[in-house]
Simulated assay, not measured.
Amino acid sequence: MAIANLKDIYIDQLQDIFSANTQSEKVTRELAEAASHPELKRALTAGVEGIEEGRRTLSEIIKSHGADPTGEFCKGMEGLVKEARSHGLDEDITDADARDAMIITQYQRMAHYGIAGYGCLAAFAKRLGLSEDAHKLQKCLDATEHGDRTMTEIAVGGINKAAA
């Protein structure tokens, strides 16, 4: 698709974040399985549920504009997922608390990609006069930011100290 205007960018980036969520969902499940701290496991499981909800919302929005949700492959998230697997799952980390700290790091990097994407999309939707889309995207942004804050609280609340 040739990009000629903000609406084209909007559709392209909706598809990009849909792809990002598709990729991050699987590795987040794997991170949840690898985590040892019960609160971290719960937060990652909630993260998977949030990612799934985001994918449903994005799919609905994309289809409402006559586009295919799978029309784009997110290479940015592909790299973040590789890093999450390499450092959070495959790395030889002998201490469970240290692994949990690394898992949080990797999850937050993926979440920050989502925060940037949802923020841009919500702004685009507002500029395009798509108030319903903007509202839905803002809810996705808020949920992703909440997940990020939860991970920070878990890290600062004990995992980082235990890993030190």
Rank of each mutant, 00 (worst) to 15 (best):
E60C: 03
I61H: 06
I62S: 09
K63L: 12
K63S: 13
S64E: 11
H65W: 08
H65A: 07
A67F: 07
P69E: 12
T70W: 12
G71F: 12
G71Q: 10
E72I: 10
E72W: 13
G76I: 04
M77L: 09
M77Y: 00
M77E: 04
G79Y: 06
G79S: 03
L80K: 13
V81A: 11
E83R: 05
R85N: 14
S86E: 15
H87F: 15
H87L: 15
H87C: 12
L89S: 10
D90I: 04
D90P: 02
E91C: 12
I93R: 06
I93M: 07
I93S: 06
T94E: 14
T94V: 13
D95T: 07
A96W: 01
A96L: 05
D97I: 00
A98R: 09
R99P: 00
R99C: 03
R99N: 02
A101N: 03
A101R: 02
M102L: 11
I104R: 01
T105L: 11
T105V: 13
T105S: 13
Q106S: 09
Q106T: 12
Q106A: 09
Q106C: 14
Y107I: 10
Q108P: 02
M110E: 03
M110T: 07
M110L: 08
M110W: 01
A111M: 11
H112T: 05
H112K: 09
H112R: 05
G117Q: 04
G117R: 06
G117M: 09
G119V: 01
C120K: 08
C120A: 15
L121Y: 07
A122C: 08
A123E: 08
F124S: 06
F124A: 06
K126L: 13
K126F: 09
R127P: 01
L128C: 09
G129P: 04
G129A: 08
